[in-house]
Amino acid sequence: MPHGSTGLPPCPRCGRQAAPGSGVFCPWCGRYLAAMEWVATPPETTRPRPAAVPAQRYTGPPRYRSVPRWGLPVGPWRAPSDAGDGPVPPLERARWLAGQLIPVLWVTVVVSAVAAVAEVWRYGLLLASRSDALSPVAVGWSDAMVWFGGWSSIAAVIAAGVLTISWSLWAYRAAADRSGTRPWRSRRRVVAGWLVPGWNLVAPGSLLAETEHAALELPVHRRPSPSRGLLVWWALWGASVLLAALALVWRFRSGTQALADGVVLHAWAGLLAAVTAYRTIRLVRWITALLEPDPRSPRELLVRPAAGGVTAASPTAKPPAPATTAPEAPTG
């Protein structure tokens, strides 16, 4: 409240005494005269003040007489499973593996072609070295290309081989599910058919022929008739396996002519590997499309006249007159 009850204090600026009732400002200099003093008073309360709790010393983690029933489960975190979760269908696995396999096969085509070109260049340098001295730069680039093409093609072939075996296994099971049959080849038999020497010349082709036959939903009692694209791939596959084995065995021969012939063999092996990888891309796309054809697009079904009616022809047959009907896979 303001000081005094009868008047204001003298002005601290000019020192003059203001008359009573002149207000809180000095009439001569205008300085604020009413000095205020504010006093904070806590409200009245009947609640006692809480006593200060002394800081306690850490005595370690809590101890239990028995193992607690609560807590996080043992093991890494896992996403919560829905009630409808179950094993992935073979068709989904085949489609996913096909999406991973096709880019690797394209890499195999490129690096195998590079390896073939490098071997051809090396053979040209061998021919030129019979009469003239070779350039160190040309020889260095040739060796670098041969080294890169050889090792990169080996790595690409191994990666493509693993994915191809996995894709063929799940495509075989998906085709069996589509045709309503039970696959008679086990997982071990499929893998052995790709890897066992000698057997891998015929087993992969027969496996894919059965897959194509089941994907086309042809009669079960009929013998599988491979399509033309599958037959071409089968021939290329067998030739590439034989040529790769011959080139590997040829490396143990010695002599100048044997080395030159080995360069030629490696060039043909690289070229054939590139062509086989390209045909494998087309075959994987073809069989994967057969497993789940697009029902929205019309397709052609080739038919041929037979005694007592009209029967559907195999994918490789060429009837005199085609007819358009509902869903059936196109020829490869």
Rank of each mutant, 00 (worst) to 15 (best):
3 H>P: 07
13 R>A: 12
14 C>N: 15
15 G>S: 04
19 A>S: 15
28 W>H: 12
30 G>C: 15
56 Q>P: 12
86 G>T: 13
87 P>R: 10
91 L>M: 06
105 L>G: 09
112 S>G: 09
119 E>Y: 14
119 E>H: 15
123 Y>G: 13
127 L>N: 09
134 L>F: 04
135 S>Q: 04
136 P>C: 09
143 D>Y: 03
145 M>S: 12
145 M>F: 14
154 I>W: 07
155 A>Y: 03
157 V>S: 13
160 A>G: 15
168 S>R: 13
170 W>R: 08
170 W>T: 11
175 A>L: 03
182 R>E: 09
195 L>D: 06
200 N>L: 00
204 P>N: 05
207 L>Y: 05
207 L>G: 01
213 H>K: 04
221 H>V: 04
222 R>H: 11
225 S>T: 10
226 P>N: 00
235 A>C: 01
237 W>D: 06
240 S>F: 07
245 A>N: 02
248 L>M: 07
249 V>G: 13
254 S>Q: 05
260 A>P: 10
267 A>F: 04
268 W>Y: 04
269 A>T: 08
271 L>K: 12
274 A>K: 10
277 A>F: 12
280 T>K: 02
284 V>G: 10
295 P>H: 14
297 S>G: 06
302 L>V: 06
305 P>I: 11
306 A>S: 09
309 G>K: 12
311 T>S: 08
314 S>F: 03
324 T>E: 04
325 T>W: 02
325 T>D: 00
326 A>K: 00
327 P>V: 14
